[in-house]
Amino acid sequence: MISQSKYQINPDIIWVNESKGRVAVINPHTKENIHLKGFEAAMWRSIWQGISPLIWARQIEDQSKNTEQILTKWLNAGLITVVES
């Protein structure tokens, strides 16, 4: 499962905490601006804080969210990278 890996935010990616728990993520290379809210924003901050994927994956399951899909989307967009163990 992809959610069992450990991730980090790509060091090139800049982002900012916004009100109501939202996060705005900017890829400086493409100048693309993505707004995350709710669960996705919490998941982004979890990766930033280095919280064990197992812990938040469990919470994700409880909320019936498709973690794998989100992680794949972010990996493909170059927003996050897998941390090699």
């Binding site: 090139d12 905490n17 900017i26």
Partner: peptide, 9 residues
């Protein structure tokens, strides 16, 4: 306010 943004970036 931005994370990861530094003068060099």
């Amino acid at each position: 306010r931005f994370h990861n943004l530094n003068p060099e970036v």
